[in-house]
């Protein structure tokens, strides 16, 4: 299998608390990996480390054979890694459509010179992006909300929107932080369906999720972490029955 993301011996301490403890793992192309573990295990920290929001004390991260350790978050996104946030971040005072439009990469209209010159090309691409964004909304059944503020959506729709933003960015690797926590079953099904389809489009996913049924449903491989360490790795079945995992949960 082709290697996409490679994390080697990462360490991170915050004020004496160990957030990542010699953590290593690899993610291949076109696979969905579940990242599970108790609260405070370091799962979200790992996402922040991969996407450059937190710098690691030691270790190395490579993506598609590029070293991305210590790169700025915006640069890392450009390599093809997109993410959602645990607390659900969106631009709430913007419309749903604008949120998605914001997520597209390589927009000529975002360059200042194109605001005034070569305006035509920028406009063409903008309207093309708009078409793509509307299609994404249509495919997921919220096209009627396109011009509503993101803030006015239901919680589930907001989670869906943040996933659509990741899709719009056309990233190769999606880091999804609890994409289905706290939303209704119908929306869970919709979001899980989108996720399962991703490998077919050449995308990989790391999924942080507490809902084990959902994890078993979409992930071929699961990593269990606790106190910043990788405790267990394997198929959902294997990890669930690993004595070390059971022990970590009982503690």
């Amino acid at each position: 299998m082709d290697n996409l993301l490679k994390i080697q011996n990462c360490n991170k301490h915050f004020n004496g608390i160990i957030a990542l403890d010699d953590f290593s793992c690899e993610i291949s192309k076109n696979e969905i990996v579940g990242l599970i573990g108790p609260n405070g295990a370091g799962k979200s920290t790992l996402f922040n480390v991969i996407t450059g929001f937190i710098s690691i004390d030691s270790g190395q991260i490579t993506f598609n054979n590029h070293t991305i350790t210590k790169k700025a978050p915006n640069k890392i996104n450009k390599f093809g890694i997109s993410r959602t946030f645990q607390g659900l971040r969106l631009i709430r005072q913007m419309t749903v459509l604008d949120n998605i439009l914001l997520s597209f990469k390589k927009q000529p209209g975002e360059h200042l010179e194109n605001v005034f010159f070569k305006n035509k090309k920028a406009k063409e691409i903008e309207s093309e992006n708009k078409r793509k964004a509307l299609k994404l909304l249509k495919d997921t059944g919220i096209e009627d909300k396109a011009n509503d503020l993101a803030d006015d959506l239901s919680y589930g729709q907001q989670k869906l929107l943040s996933l659509l933003c990741c899709l719009a960015s056309d990233a190769e690797l999606l880091l999804l932080d609890e994409p289905i926590a706290g939303i209704n079953p119908a929306m869970i099904e919709k979001i899980l369906f989108i996720i399962t389809e991703l490998p077919k489009k050449g995308k990989s996913v790391i999924l942080i999720e507490h809902n084990m049924d959902a994890v078993s449903q979409v992930c071929e491989r699961v990593i269990f972490m606790d106190t910043g360490k990788k405790i267990s790795e394997g198929t959902p079945e294997e990890v669930r029955n690993d004595p070390k995992v059971i022990e970590a949960y009982l503690e």
Binding site: T51, F53, A72, P73, N74, K75, N77, K78, S82, R83, F85, R89, L90, I91, R92, Q93, M94, D98, L101, L102, S103, K105, E110, C165, S169
Partner: peptide, 18 residues
């Protein structure tokens, strides 16, 4: 659009590659 995004949420805007 990016300016407004920065105004509302800098972290999110960075995560979108801006």
């Amino acid at each position: 659009r990016i300016l407004k995004a920065i105004r509302e949420d800098e972290v999110f805007t960075k995560s979108l590659g801006k």
